[in-house]
Design a protein around this nucleic acid. Structure first.
Lengths: 346, 346
DNA sequence: CTGAAAGCGCTTACAG
DNA sequence: CTGAAAGCGCTTACAG
């Protein structure tokens, strides 16, 4: 006599289902469903009974069934440009943690800074009817924006706040990139540097915002010179930072400080300076951006702007969770600020 | 007169469904389903008709419905210890890419090297009835192993190959960590170093395997000395590498080479040496492991072992994809090797 | 506040 | 090789 007495014809999974719970609690599945989801309009004692039964049977709802019936899954799509920049990994990790604690699974997508790829990814991920989407930046194709809007899925943008020209009815968590760029440049000016170059790679929207801050600060000081901009569309890396540093120092010996748009470039520059015997900050000052791993270990330690990406990831997740529940955030554009970290390089 | 003429009572999503396709192709949904999934036992001409209809209607199957009906989703769970080590991010990115190209979504889980957390994560992820799981290493709790086995979901282990003592009936893609440790140590010995320390953090299973390789090589040369082992359970980092380097150099001045179990430690040591004015490799040689970003940029460039993590992630995904289709891999334990990279530090 | 019933969009025995 | 029907495990109008 087998212990497992599942009815003959049934295609049973062996899984505890909602009707098992309902039966054990002596209610209908509708009531059990409502009780478990904390939907109001269920008598308190029934709620208790159902919860007890669920607990006792170790019931766990089936995500697929729930998604199919409610047309909304427990997934959240998270779109990032790259995984090779720890910045985005920090964002991802923090968001994922917050999401997971509320029972949501992260579906990540890597766009490689490509709007086409982002669009395609969005199309795929939206098929899963995610409960929400978290997307990096504000620079998306019209089609992408339409996909999101058309899906009716709540969305929070990461890193950038809306610019004045942007759509007003959207949510974001980040900080003012231009302001950070301006303040870092201001620091350099206060230290007495006069010919401050801006060196950047990747050239995504955020980098350009930092550049505009740099420009604004120099213009205000009457020190702006367009030939001090060094822009390279290639991917950011230590090696590229070294190359750019050499170029700048060689072609523009009068430059007394360099603002690299990202710490990896700055770290590479520092290494290159060491190799070439160029003293930092005596001969040329160097600053970076983001305060990535290792920037406190370089020689000299790197002066940079610390960006709150873990807090951004987490706060954005919380905002999204609220939107999913139908709450309107009191601050649709959440500015988490940044911090100037003065170390030895400038 | 509204364009959208969906029948009044229906709770329609507006989505194109399989029955739309079936109707358009003039077949039953069963046949449409089979034709689309390439299940045999469908007449060739019907297959063509159905595919044409699906194409024309831009039909995309609903993942939730499919998961519910087939009791298998299009998710693949990928368990990683950490995201803060680029090693694992490389693994993730490569696996995700391969999986996605076949229509599978990655559900990642971060275990923080904690077997309890891994178990919990597995429990959660298995609820989604993933089509497969990719899991780092071979050091799992018995309960975790049981969860995987009990779920019937195919699983491939990443990074480590099975040790002789391990279960035979399992799949893995990686390389021989002990062998790599031994060869790197052999390189040091051939260069004439005689007192080779082993410095490690994190102390996960793979690190210990590298250490056993180091020990084996030294023993074979009659040079093994247990007091040359420096083990620190803390997380690996540049800063810790610097600290360990200082300790070793100070407490054991006779040490002429140090094998750091990971490049970040070695990079930190190199930076520390620069700060302290200790010449590498003249006073002490340094080698790392993994060939992480920046190891070719340090001063001097770091001698290390390049590990094929992108290839591992991709090959593991392919093996898993095969298993999902019911294929048995010709090589259950796929050894992808490693490469000694000799640069300036040793 | 509660329940019976329909429905979400697929897959899969089963019968032919 | 093909189709009608049941079923996967939930949610949600609808009626009371």
């Amino acid at each position: 006599m087998p212990l497992d007495r599942s009815p003959p014809g049934r295609r049973t999974t062996g899984r505890i289902t909602l009707s098992d719970v309902a039966r054990a609690a002596g209610v209908s599945t509708s009531t059990a469903s409502r009780a478990l989801r904390g939907e109001r309009a269920v008598a308190p004692d029934l709620i208790a009974q159902v919860q007890a039964a669920a607990q006792r049977l170790a019931y766990v709802p089936d995500p697929a069934a729930r998604a199919l019936a409610s047309r909304r899954s427990d997934h959240v799509a998270v779109l990032l440009p790259l995984l090779s920049n720890t910045l985005f990994v920090d964002l991802l990790e923090a968001a994922q943690k917050a999401l997971r604690s509320q029972g949501y699974q992260t579906l990540m997508g890597v766009t490689h800074y490509d709007r086409q790829e982002e669009e395609q990814l969005l199309r795929e991920l939206l098929l899963h009817r995610p409960a929400g989407v978290l997307i990096t930046g504000r620079d998306h194709s019209p089609a992408s924006l339409e996909l999101i809007a058309g899906s009716g899925v709540p969305c929070v943008h990461l890193m950038d706040l809306a610019d004045a020209s942007g759509p007003l009815l959207s949510y974001s968590v980040g900080f003012d990139q231009a302001q950070a760029g301006a303040e870092l440049t201001g620091h350099l000016l206060r230290k007495g540097y006069r010919r401050v170059a801006f060196a950047a790679a990747q050239l995504d929207a955020r980098v350009m915002q930092r550049m505009s801050g740099w420009r604004r600060a120099l213009q205000a000081a009457g020190l702006y010179d367009p030939t001090l901009e060094w822009l390279n569309p290639a991917a950011s890396s230590l090696a590229l930072g070294g190359q750019m540093f050499e170029q700048i120092v060689q072609q523009r010996p009068a430059v007394d400080a360099i603002f690299f748009c990202n710490d990896d470039l700055a770290q590479g520059a520092l290494l290159c300076a060491l190799r070439r015997g160029i003293r930092v900050p005596e001969q040329v000052a160097i600053v970076g951006f983001n305060d990535l791993t290792g920037s406190d270990q370089t020689l000299p330690p790197l002066t940079t702007v610390r960006t709150p990406r873990a807090r951004i990831g987490e706060a954005a997740a919380q905002m999204l969770l609220g939107l999913i529940k139908g709450q309107t955030p009191e601050q649709p554009q959440l500015d988490l600020g940044f911090e100037l970290i003065e170390r030895g390089s400038a």
